[in-house]
């Protein structure tokens, strides 16, 4: 079936920067790692501040992938 051809034929090859999108999953789904009180920060147990920090870190993981996509898109348009 020719419809089954992979969509990478669009010239969108896998780039390692996409692995950054997996980082929040590893960090937040490995719960035993952060299920602890110490080190606490301003009296907030690790369990809570670690996850709160990831609201920001998660966005920071997406940013390089976003910039990479914008670059490849501009290149595609320039062709």
């Amino acid at each position: 079936m020719d419809v089954d051809k992979p969509q990478e034929s669009q010239g969108r090859k896998f780039h390692p920067v996409y692995l950054l999108l997996a980082v929040p999953f590893v960090a937040l789904l490995w719960v035993p790692f952060y299920n602890r009180i110490e080190p606490s920060l301003f009296g907030i147990p690790f369990f809570y501040w670690f996850q709160m920090a990831w609201t920001l870190l998660g966005a920071l993981c997406i940013l390089p992938v976003y910039l990479h996509e914008e670059r490849t898109r501009q290149k595609d348009d320039g062709k």
Partner: peptide
Amino acid sequence: GAIGFFAVPYTILIYPILFL
């Protein structure tokens, strides 16, 4: 207690999915 906090990792993990 702590189990109720799952809403936080949940609402962080939605964004890589949204992006991709």
